[in-house]
């Protein structure tokens, strides 16, 4: 028998190798963790800024982000949840997705309300305000929902009238490059600007339609061109807006916020 094939030697080589490898991996993982976190945070911040059309220069994301105020809200009541510190309120993937897995901090969605295939919805979520001189200039809401291959994660920015869209930006998705992944195309993203969410009677209207928007149609301000070759992704985008801007999403919060903004405006006048 070869001297290497004894039981002792086999165990020795196996155990030493595993120890050495695991030590090296742990050291690298710990050593790079801060750097990784920083990049990830920067990536999300840049998407938040860009959804509100604030991203002008890649270089000073941190500086630009200083103008953003983070607040945690309770989706059930529509109130601010100031007992939760927004700085430490962080999920693993998505801001609060981890909260949606815990039965204590989330609600189960029934199949007829769960149009974006989320399964559960968290009770608390972090949102962002862009303020100038203490006046809200943009409200940035995280949204997510199923596309074709997986969940799309993004931010929807709306104006202080709470009905006009500034932009929709995705920071993570698994859609097909060239087809569904065109949600990242700046040209398509620019089509969202100025679209209205609800009609003047309050009816929910915004949707991604199939094909091009008819520029003469009275509905054009509620419609966005579909992505050609990506019907399911387009439908997913519509569905997630319907869900997140609906009763189970931000509707309660937005109603309260509207009153708040109107009161403030009245005071200022």
């Amino acid at each position: 028998m070869n001297k290497n094939d004894t039981l002792l030697k086999t165990l020795f080589v196996g155990i030493t190798l595993c120890l050495v490898c695991s030590i090296i991996i742990s050291l690298t993982a710990v050593g790079l963790r801060d750097q990784q976190k920083l990049l990830k945070q920067k990536d999300q911040q840049s998407k938040i800024l860009s959804s509100a059309g604030l991203l002008t220069n890649q270089k000073n994301i941190e500086e630009l982000f200083m103008a953003i105020e983070e607040r945690v809200i309770n989706l059930d009541t529509g109130e601010y949840a100031d007992s939760l510190d927004p700085k430490s309120f962080d999920g693993k993937n998505f801001e609060s997705e981890d909260y949606s897995k815990d039965p204590l901090t989330s609600v189960q969605l029934s199949s007829d309300t769960d149009i974006s295939s989320l399964k559960r919805r968290e009770n608390f979520i972090k949102i962002y305000f862009y303020k100038e001189n203490n006046n809200i200039k943009a409200v940035i809401l995280p949204v997510r929902g199923l596309g074709l291959w997986g969940t799309l994660y993004g931010y929807l920015a709306i104006e202080p009238d709470l009905n006009t869209i500034i932009g929709l930006e995705y920071f993570s998705h698994k859609e097909t490059p060239g087809l569904g992944a065109e949600v990242d195309n700046p040209r398509w993203k620019s089509k969202w600007r100025g679209k209205k969410i609800r009609s003047s009677s309050g009816e929910f209207k915004i949707e991604v339609i199939k094909g091009l928007v008819n520029l003469e149609s009275p509905e054009r301000k509620y419609q966005v061109d579909g992505l050609s070759g990506a019907t399911i992704t387009s439908r997913g985008v519509s569905n997630m807006l319907t869900f997140w801007l609906g009763e189970l999403g931000y509707a309660k919060f937005l109603n309260k916020l509207k009153v708040e903004i109107e009161n403030e405006e009245a005071l200022n006048v």
Partner: peptide
């Protein structure tokens, strides 16, 4: 030093 019977695992 790799024992032949576990070489692929190594």
């Amino acid at each position: 030093h790799i024992p032949t019977n576990v070489r692929m695992i190594v």
